[in-house]
Write a protein that binds this DNA or RNA. Structure first.
Length: 979
RNA sequence: GCCCGGGUGGCGGAACUGGUAGACGCGUUGGUCUCAAAAACCAAUAAGCGCAAGCUUGUGCGGGUUCGAUUCCCGCCCCGGGUACCA
């Protein structure tokens, strides 16, 4: 009987659904295992073959743990709020909820086909009001909490208020005035500085094209990650979360979790802890002081200038009269530069002397105070002490403006300070008064002690981590449960949640620049009278706690009940993309710690173990085309120029560019060509490649991979048809190779719609079946490694499944019938099975799925050779295979006479006794080179082995009559003879 | 620049604690079956030399430790990812 995967797979997918096979058990006495995938954003493009990679891996573990008797929680859901659905809504007017719903339906269909064992009864969607009700609830807790440095945890803000009312002022809390004399409004303003969710002026990444602010991790190279639009820095009132309060705990918590080193390192860098001290400098002839933060107080005597960030308000305060205008024009220049300009001109040194002088706290010397762009307003105090001799940035600044450079650290091997700064930390202090002769580290400590003694500053720890901006000027997100009463932001009551996202007529900002929610304002008011907050929460809000909701998905009384939280605790294995290192994975740790502080959950870290699956890249096909102008960068919004529309676009086969140069040049003149390329770039969204060959610039444009054969030749007919459907219905010219073929270039890169290189799992399921897809994706290589997708080799895996199938059937190919025998197995069969069981179990534990699949192949190849059809061998094998290829396993299991799903059959055990051999074929090497093999009994002692080897005929040949210098015997491994 | 990964046949990749380098699969070549093709099955397949037995060279490059190194140490090169004036 043929292996008919279509029928089998459908049959079992329906069976699982009908029998609720993967419904999570509520028996809390059983051992639990929580395995979670990072939930997807349901984009319109659907799943490509890269998405399921991690899901397949986690599904194998989930099914394997189920076999092992664990109560497994293996859920799936959707991170459904977000920009793309909203952009689409703006363009089409369709409600983002509708688009999202459609996309989810597509995802679900695709996921179902692969045979995952998700418990869909616990599905969550961040955009459901029954879900975001709790996201809003957490926001209210954050708003109503402050971070008490004494207890080192979040506490109710009322605790702080009570203390203030009693006239107490806890450490870290400071404000002007007397609490009990303050107005309501003033009290609110003070409390805002301590709430964990607060409204404050924040320097944000403002993206005018998207009409919203973006988080740091949503900005890449000064442009938005989605869409590539320019981003500028802007000071705006914003809701933020005080993640910085948790900086130290977020850092310390990394030590205890089993995450990849690179992931932890990325978080450590992002948190960016540095230790040093603050030092105050007085300004000559002024009451103002400048406070700087430095990690190198040992270089205090090398300070030759101070530099303030242009945004630092002191700059204009202290600017001395003759330089006032210069300074303020510099400040406004610096402020108006976009983030992109700043980034692209990092090397460019700008600055201005303020005209003011600071007094060196130890020497009393006057040192000039400058302002310069290289000083960041957001870090430390927004001011630095310039030590050009020992800091390369200060050095560049000093050189550029001709400032003094004084060496104060003398390393063992002399350095030339006139050439570059010495930034090393080994050496002794010179020219440094009381620090002279001290090693750097000692000098650091000594100087901090001195600074503290003289009350110039104090030991300080600084973090690079910024508070997280929590508002977006967008429609498609969770409304922030805040209303305004007399201009004071007030929290809603918990029992008034959810605050439902209102309907609006358009998803764009209003004419006056307010967020889209302002469009609902006339009817959308708190208790019919107070304005709601108009910004919505960012994309990461809902994903920062979703893992908790799965534990208790239907609960409408609580976010998660204490009982369930205590049972499920944390995620045992979390699988997802490495790109979330500093975004999602930091926020989810932050919220977890916060909810722990509230006493809601028993754990401080969301996931014990984290694994990042590698990206599956696409192999794109590109057609060479000809232009003669350099690439023009960003051209958003430009129309294709008219002259260009009339021109043909010339495509040229990969191997004949040079040959054809003269022929295609006649199509162009410089001027028109330039305009053409300008317009064209816009249409191709900047994914093309540009390569210079001779004086030609070849622009490689993506073509659908489906048009190109495995030998890289293009289906020219299809290609013409496709190009004709492009906007403008352009004319094209094609230059082929001499034999009439058109050769494309190949490039391995990210899979995306715009690169036309997407491969979907559906096609594989259709042609080979889900079991083959699952095995193949695992067989491709180590889970964590990125690899290009290639269908080469899928037949190998498919053949393996068919070979396995055949073991269970007897008779001629087409008329074969199912038959397994009850005969007792032989030792060869037992050895094959138990070897496989041992290896595969170990491989699953260390997530080495590619080697597990190959072990299955070895076993099945061996059994096929032995024509083994014994039930006692095949049954355990099928059970072990069931996490990898569940459909065929269920089918064979049923045919072997079982009436319950294979899912809980128990993990097959292996018996060492079947694996032991009594002899071993020793590789015998002479001087480290393997020369021959000798089969010897494993019972022999080292000495016996040595005797046997030396006396053997074959070895004597190599000894040439002489006695060996040395013989190394590793029993069961190797023999090495040194002559 | 800095921080993490990673460089092994024609290709994807094995080799767990220093012990037979190239498992398993793809591809390629030859064969069986067939009128033919597909499928299936069998055999070969790191490179070089050789009729052969066999020899030599081989895990990015150069050194080192060791009886023995893909594995450990030192110095470099290349590729991928992250990050970027963080004082």
């Amino acid at each position: 009987m043929e292996y008919d995967f279509r029928t089998i797979e459908q049959k079992w997918q329906q069976y699982w659904k009908k029998h609720h096979t993967f419904r999570t058990g509520n028996d809390f006495s059983r051992p639990k295992y929580y395995i979670l995938d990072m939930f997807p954003y349901p984009s319109g493009a659907g799943l490509h073959v890269g998405h399921p990679l991690g899901y397949i891996a986690s599904d194998i573990i989930a099914r394997y743990r189920r076999l092992g008797g664990f109560n497994v929680l293996h859920p799936m859901g959707y991170d459904a709020f977000g920009l793309p659905a909203e952009q689409y809504a703006i363009q089409t007017g369709q409600h983002p909820a509708v688009t999202t719903e459609n996309n989810i339906a597509t995802y679900r269909k695709q996921l179902d086909r692969i045979g995952f064992s998700f418990d869909w009864e616990r599905e969550v969607r961040t955009c459901d009001k029954s879900y975001y009700r709790w996201t809003q609830w957490i926001f209210l807790q954050l708003f109503n909490s402050w971070y008490n440095p004494l207890s080192d945890k979040a506490e109710p803000i009322n605790n702080l208020i009570q203390q203030l009312e009693k006239g107490q002022q806890p450490p870290g809390v400071s404000f002007e005035g007397q609490w009990n004399l303050m107005s309501e409004k003033e009290k609110h303003a003070v409390l805002m500085n301590y709430r964990l969710a607060y409204l404050g002026e924040a320097m944000v990444n403002w993206c005018p094209a998207l009409g919203t602010v973006l988080a740091n991790e949503e900005v890449k190279d000064g442009v938005s990650e989605r869409g590539g639009y320019p981003v500028e820095r802007k000071l705006m009132p914003q809701w933020s979360l005080r993640i910085t309060a948790y900086a130290e705990r977020l850092l310390a918590g990394l030590a205890a979790i089993d995450w990849s080193e690179s992931m932890k390192e990325a978080q450590r860098n992002w948190i960016g802890k540095s230790e040093g001290c603050s030092i105050r400098f007085n300004i000559k002839g002024s009451d103002e002081t400048v406070e700087v933060f430095t990690t190198r107080p040992d270089t205090i005597f090398g300070v030759t200038f101070l530099a303030l960030a242009p945004e630092n308000e002191l700059v204009e305060k202290i600017a001395a009269s003759p330089r006032r205008e210069l300074v303020s024009s510099y400040v406004s220049y610096a402020k108006n530069r976009t983030e992109r300009e700043r980034l692209s001109e990092v090397k460019k040194i700008t600055g201005e002397f303020t005209g003011a002088y600071a007094i060196h706290p130890f020497t009393g010397k006057e040192i000039p105070v400058w302002t310069g762009e290289y000083v960041l307003s957001g870090y430390g105090t927004g001011a630095v002490m310039g030590v050009p001799a020992h800091d390369s940035r200060d050095y560049a600044f000093a050189k550029h403006f001709g400032l003094e450079i004084v060496q104060v650290i003398n390393p063992a091997t002399p350095v030339d300070i006139s050439r570059e700064a010495f930034e090393g930390k080994n050496g002794r202090c010179i020219n440094s008064d009381f620090l002279n002769g001290l090693e750097v580290q000692d000098a650091v400590n000594r100087c901090i002690a001195e600074v503290e003694k003289r009350a110039l500053g104090r030991h300080r720890v600084n973090y690079r981590l910024r508070d997280a901006v929590f508002g977006r000027q967008r429609y498609w997100g969770e409304p922030i449960p805040i209303y305004y009463k007399d201009g004071i932001p007030c929290p809603m009551q918990e029992n008034e949640l959810p605050l439902v996202l209102p309907e609006v007529d358009k998803y764009l900002p209003t004419e006056s620049g307010e967020p889209p929610l302002a469009r609902a304002a006339t009817s959308w008011k708190y208790r019919g009278q107070y304005e709601y907050e108009k910004t919505t929460m960012p994309g990461w809000a809902g994903s920062s706690w979703y893992y908790l909701r799965y534990m208790d998905a239907g609960n409408d009384k609580e976010l998660v009940s204490a009982e369930t939280a205590n049972y499920w605790r944390d995620v045992d294995l979390y699988i997802g993309g490495a790109e979330h290192a500093t975004g999602h994975l930091l926020y989810v740790r932050f919220w977890t710690k916060f909810l722990y502080d509230l006493g809601l959950i028993p754990i401080q870290e969301p996931a014990k173990k984290l694994v990042n699956q590698g990206m599956i890249q696409g192999v794109s096909a590109l057609t060479g085309s000809v232009g003669k102008t350099p690439r023009i960068e960003s051209l958003h919004g430009k129309q294709l120029p008219l002259e260009a529309m009339k021109l043909p676009l010339v495509f040229v086969s990969e191997n004949s560019v040079e040959k054809n140069e003269a022929r295609f040049l006649k199509f162009y003149d410089e001027e028109v060509l330039k305009k053409y390329n300008d317009g064209y770039k816009h249409l191709t969204r900047g994914n093309d490649y540009e390569i210079i060959k001779g004086d030609m610039t070849i622009i490689y444009r993506h073509v659908p991979v489906g048009f190109v054969s495995r030998k890289d030749s293009l289906d020219i007919e299809k290609f013409r048809e496709w190009r004709a459907s492009w906007p403008g219905g352009e004319k094209i010219e094609i230059f082929t190779e001499e034999d009439g073929t058109f050769i494309c270039r190949r490039e391995t890169e990210k899979m995306s719609k715009s690169r036309f290189n997407v491969e979907t799992p559906d096609d594989i399921c259709e042609n080979y079946g889900a079991d083959t897809l699952r095995l193949y994706e695992m067989f491709l290589g180590p889970l964590e490694q990125s690899k290009p997708w290639s269908i080469n080799g899928i037949t190998g895996v498919h053949n393996f499944i068919r070979k396995l199938w055949k073991l269970f059937f007897t008779g001629e190919e087409n008329t074969s019938v199912f038959y397994v025998s009850d005969e007792a197995p032989g030792s060869a069969e037992l050895k094959l099975l138990h070897k496989a069981v041992k290896r595969i179990r170990e491989d699953i534990e260390r997530l080495s799925f590619n080697t597990a699949v190959s072990s299955f192949m070895i076993c099945v190849n061996g059994l096929a050779e032995l024509k083994c059809n014994k039930k006692s061998i095949l049954e355990p094998l099928v059970i072990l295979l069931s996490p990898f290829a569940p459909h065929i396993s269920e089918e064979l299991w049923e045919r072997m006479g079982h009436d319950q799903s294979i899912s809980f059959a128990g993990v097959p055990e292996y018996r060492e006794e079947y694996l032991t051999e009594d002899s071993f074929e020793y590789p015998v090497s002479v001087n480290g080179k393997t020369r021959l093999k000798l089969s010897l009994s494993l019972g022999l002692s080292k000495e016996d082995i040595e005797k046997e080897v030396i006396s053997s005929e074959a070895v004597r040949k190599y000894l040439g009559g002489a006695a060996p210098k040395k013989v190394i015997v590793v029993p069961g491994r190797i023999v090495n003879i040194v002559v």
